[in-house]
Structures are given as structure tokens and as C-alpha cells.
Design a protein around this nucleic acid. Structure first.
Length: 433
DNA sequence: TCTGGGGTCCTAGGACCC
DNA sequence: TCTGGGGTCCTAGGACCC
């Protein structure tokens, strides 16, 4: 006997599902090497710097963000399989997962590379949400090999909570959990620590704990005024959502408002030539991303950092924002402005470890207005089109500006890179005849 | 020797305008 | 005792996310 007798067949309010991939990067690596099933895996950041993903088996031994060089011995001792990050593979796998998820609702919000919200509407009271979640999980796992968890609830924030429970108690839930009644909601929130709530970071956690707020449930008992004053409207929305009132709608995918390309270097560099080549390349990458979403930027920021882990060396960190005289997405122009900015902030005698370019304040390419005196050079447009099409067909950045190093393909340290199984024919798995 | 790379939203306060 | 009153735009900084 369920409590179905309390419902009739009238349509229920809408429900949200949060679907996310378990240990996504590690799972991607495992898809193509089934012998790694149940084996510990970690994936490293760029330059093989630190750990950014762990399989469940690796979690007891390796904290998130661990510096790879500090854990070398533990990797060996625990026989942990170590991979350099392979974003081409993860991006491709992500697309496959999202495509399958879209079969289950026309209303889907891709929230990150490994997460999506789905909204369900118009089902009746007899509809079995748990069974529906199970079907989603089956479809994705069977179709991609990536294991997922599904949380379903009347609000987005509660769907996040349900998802945590689905994952945490996977043996009992089968990685699917539904919060539907108020009893379930309260029980779940009493279990969830305040610091683990979506939208509560370190700062808010500290303040809330001081106030005696230990769990998500405690939080829902606070007054709206207090939350408003101390956590802004963002906090109020969270409060309402956790109380069961849906205020966060599905976001429509929109163009990016900032685009960044920043990197740590494989080692420290002090010479101007190296840094300026890197910055030019970052600017070119930003320009290409701008053109892809048909935007022009009106400002560009350049920053450089010394290595802040080296307390023994002089520290220096500086950024500069250049407001452009006209909107542009030309690689040539953005590289030029980036060079001007770098000249202003570059200081000699510093060991630089990181630099980046961020473009901001976009206007659509189509309505790019011409100012009276200074305009983006229209001759660049066809050149950029050719650059983009050639680079696209080759698949790697091949056409470069003179300010970029023509000979050297900048190497990240990627000693443990897996093949690009899903994106390169030549590296695809060989199938025996 | 070695420690990631992206993003978003909100608010307060100053500049400026009438 | 007294120093107007709005409004808008912009920016820096804080907080959070994956």
C-alpha cells in the first residue's frame, strides 16, 4: 500500500530532475578500458599539476586537488591509474550523454559538462517518478557507458539534494532518488550538512554555523529577512527552494558573457618574448571563441602571475583592462591590444608561472556599429573566416599570427594522456575482424 | 622541478545627469 | 541649525558554481 489513495488522477505540479555523471572524467577514461572497472583512477589537470577527478576507489587515498608530485608514491603504492586530462574526449562524451537525456524531456538545461536539469510537466499522480529515473539511468548507461545519478524533486535545489542522496546511498537507491512528500523533504534536509548545500560556500557556511545552523533543515527555519540581509536575494531563492517553493526556472542557453583563456606554464618563465607569445596565443583563442558565438568584445583583460607557491621568489601579480575603441573579434586586433596591455604590466626579473587573457563586455557581431574615426578593420573579416574554416577542418590550431611562435606547438605536460578514442578515427579502438 | 581553468550573479558606492 | 532629491550607469569586489 503506497499513499496513492490520497491522490486522484489530476495533473501534479511540475518536477525537476538533476542528472549528473558519476566521477565524470574518471568514468570517461574507464569507458574505453573496461579492465579498469573497479580499479582506482585519477585524472590530472593541465600540466599534470593536480588531481581534478577521482573514481570511487581512489577517493579514500587521494584528496580533491591533491598536487600530483606529492602523491606520486601513493599512486604507485595503491596502484592508481593516472590520466592526463583529455578534454576532447570528455566534451564528446558529454554531448552523447546530453543527447540521450534530451529524449526524456524537451525542457533540458545543460548545467555543466557533466550535469543537466530536466523538467517534467503534465504527468498524472500515478506516474512513477522513481521508475522514470531508473529508465533514464538505464538509457544513458547503456548508450554511453557512463554511470549517472538522478535526483527528482519539486524544485531545482531539492533535486540537487535528492541527487546527493541517490549517490551517497547508491546501494539502497540504485542511484535514483525522489523527494516528493514533505516528510521526505524534511528527512533529507536534516541529513544534509549546511556546507554541502548547493549555493552555500565556505563563507556562508562559517557564518551560518556560528548561528547554530548545522543542517539544510536548520537553514529553512531562518527568517527571510535575515537571509536577505546576509546572503542577498540568492540566499532567499535558496531558502524558498529548500522549503519546497519553486523559484528557480530552467535557464535558456545563452551566449557567454565573458570568455577566458588562461594557463599555468610548465615551468617559470622570466623573458618577455615567451610571455608575449603566450599572451598573443591566448588572445587568438579568445577571438576564435568570440567569432564562434558571433560576438565582438569591447574590453580585454590581460594578467600575469608569478608562482605563488614559491615563497622564496619575489611575488608579482598584475592585471590590466583595456577598453577597446571599437568592438572587435579579430585575432589580429585582439593580439595587438593584448600586446599593448602586456607591455604596461610586464616587469623584469619576475619568474612568471601563469598568464591569461579574458575578453568582456560583448556586443553582437551583426549590429557592430561603426564609430566615426576608429573601427575594426573590415578586411580582417574574410581573413578570420578563412582562418576559422582551415583551423576547423584541420582540427588543431594551425594558422597562426606572426606574434605566435610558428615552430613550436606549446607543450603541456601530458605524460598520461589517453588516446582520443571517440574523436579521432586513427585512435579509435581497433576491432578484430 | 612540480600545485587547474573556466564561468555566473549580486551589491554597494561613486560618477554623473536633470 | 543648516547643507535637495531623484534617477541611471558603471565598476570593483565578493560570493558562489563545476
Amino acid at each position: 500500500m503506497g499513499d496513492s489513495h490520497t491522490f486522484n488522477t489530476k495533473t501534479l505540479a511540475s518536477m525537476f530532475a538533476l542528472v549528473d555523471c558519476n566521477n565524470f572524467y574518471a568514468s570517461c577514461e574507464r569507458v574505453f578500458q573496461p579492465k579498469l572497472r573497479n580499479k582506482p583512477i585519477v585524472v590530472l589537470s593541465n600540466n599534470d599539476g593536480c588531481v581534478i577527478a577521482r573514481s570511487n576507489e581512489a577517493k579514500p587515498f587521494i584528496p580533491m586537488g591533491a598536487a600530483a608530485f606529492e602523491y606520486k608514491e601513493i599512486f604507485e603504492r595503491e596502484k592508481i591509474n593516472v590520466f592526463s586530462s583529455n578534454y576532447a574526449l570528455y566534451g564528446d562524451m558529454s554531448n552523447r550523454v546530453m543527447t540521450l537525456l534530451a529524449e526524456f524531456s524537451p525542457d533540458i538545461e545543460v548545467y555543466s559538462i557533466d550535469e543537466a536539469f530536466l523538467k517534467f510537466e503534465g504527468f498524472d499522480a500515478h506516474f512513477d517518478l522513481n521508475e522514470h529515473g531508473k529508465q533514464i539511468r538505464y538509457r544513458v548507461t547503456k548508450g554511453t557507458g557512463i554511470p549517472i545519478s538522478v535526483g527528482i524533486a519539486p524544485t531545482k535545489a531539492l533535486a540537487k539534494v535528492a541527487n546527493k542522496i541517490a549517490k551517497k546511498f547508491s546501494e539502497r537507491t540504485g542511484n535514483v532518488y525522489v523527494i516528493n512528500t514533505d516528510e521526505q523533504r524534511i528527512k533529507a534536509l536534516k541529513w544534509l550538512l549546511i556546507g554541502d548545500v548547493w549555493g552555500v560556500g565556505r563563507q556562508h557556511e562559517k557564518r551560518l554555523e556560528k548561528l547554530g545552523v548545522k543542517t539544510a533543515y536548520d537553514f529553512t527555519l531562518l527568517t527571510e529577512q535575515w537571509v536577505r540581509k546576509n546572503m542577498s536575494v540568492v540566499g532567499v531563492r535558496l531558502l524558498l527552494e529548500l522549503q519546497g517553493k519553486s523559484v528557480l526556472e530552467m535557464d535558456v542557453p545563452s551566449s557567454k558573457k565573458n570568455i577566458a583563456c588562461t594557463r599555468s606554464f610548465d615551468k617559470n618563465y622570466s623573458d618577455y618574448e615567451t610571455i608575449s607569445e603566450r599572451v598573443a596565443t591566448f588572445a587568438v583563442t579568445c577571438a576564435a571563441k568570440l567569432r564562434k558565438q558571433k560576438s565582438c568584445c569591447n574590453a580585454i583583460m590581460i594578467f600575469i602571475h608569478s608562482n605563488y607557491h614559491r615563497k622564496d621568489l619575489p611575488q608579482y601579480s598584475k592585471n590590466i583592462v583595456i577598453n577597446l575603441p571599437f568592438p572587435t573579434n579579430s585575432s589580429i586586433e585582439l593580439a595587438q591590444f593584448a600586446a599593448i596591455g602586456l607591455k604596461k604590466i610586464f616587469k623584469k626579473g619576475i619568474a612568471y608561472k601563469k598568464a591569461g587573457v579574458i575578453v568582456m563586455n560583448f556586443t553582437p557581431e551583426a549590429i557592430q556599429q561603426t564609430t566615426l574615426f576608429e573601427t575594426s578593420n573590415p578586411k580582417h573579416k574574410p581573413i578570420m573566416d578563412v582562418m576559422d574554416s582551415i583551423n576547423k577542418s584541420i582540427g588543431k590550431i594551425k594558422i597562426k599570427l606572426a606574434s605566435q611562435d610558428p615552430d613550436r606547438t606549446w607543450k603541456m605536460r601530458q605524460e598520461k594522456l589517453s588516446p582520443r578514442y571517440s574523436t579521432r578515427i586513427s585512435e579509435a579502438i581497433k576491432i578484430k575482424a
